[in-house]
């Protein structure tokens, strides 16, 4: 099966995902936030949830709440990230799935190692992005993080996954 026709190259997509992950890992919150389009959704569904308007989510942030989340992290008083967790995102299995009027839809798998006083926590799953070009820059308008253990009790996850 060949990849669908896309105005973005696989290399461009990979570079975007790596950059996003690195900015999150390094706690460069403003730069991470600047990767979002104005019309944005950051969604980490709970297990079995297909409709975030009817079911609770781990994260369901539209653009304004993404800004609130970042602003809270930057206060220095977001205790669950003060001190920041040490984070390493590993991104793999990057694919361009489709492209339509809303943007280029990509899928990748991820593994995140998080270290803080609690100990070492591993997070894994699939991440789907919708990427759009705006004024020559690549931005994300949608990021969905599907945790492999969304159906289990999760530890605190206050970093940007």
């Amino acid at each position: 099966m060949s990849a669908p026709a896309s105005t973005l190259s696989k290399a461009e997509v990979e570079q975007f995902l790596y950059t996003e992950a690195r900015l999150a890992d390094e706690g460069r919150y403003d730069e991470w936030e600047s990767l979002w389009a104005d019309d944005a959704l950051y969604w980490v569904p709970a297990a079995g949830s297909t409709d975030p308007q009817r079911h609770i989510s781990v994260i369901f942030d539209h653009r304004s709440r993404i800004a609130l989340r970042v602003a809270q992290l930057k206060t220095g008083k977001r205790h669950s990230q003060d001190p920041r967790s040490n984070i390493a995102h590993l991104i793999s299995n990057v694919e361009i799935l489709a492209e339509d009027a809303s943007g280029t839809h990509t899928s990748a798998t991820f593994l995140v190692m998080e270290s803080r006083s609690r100990g070492l926590t591993s997070w894994a799953g699939r991440v789907e992005h919708t990427l759009v070009r705006h004024d020559g820059r690549l931005l994300m308008s949608r990021k969905v993080v599907r945790l492999v253990n969304a159906d289990r009790a999760l530890p605190t996850m206050a970093f940007l996954i």
């Binding site: 709970a46 079995g48 079911h55 609770i56 781990v58 009790a153 999760l154 530890p155 605190t156």
Partner: peptide, 8 residues
Amino acid sequence: AGWLQHEV
């Protein structure tokens, strides 16, 4: 509206 489970 579904549940979240948060372990501490």
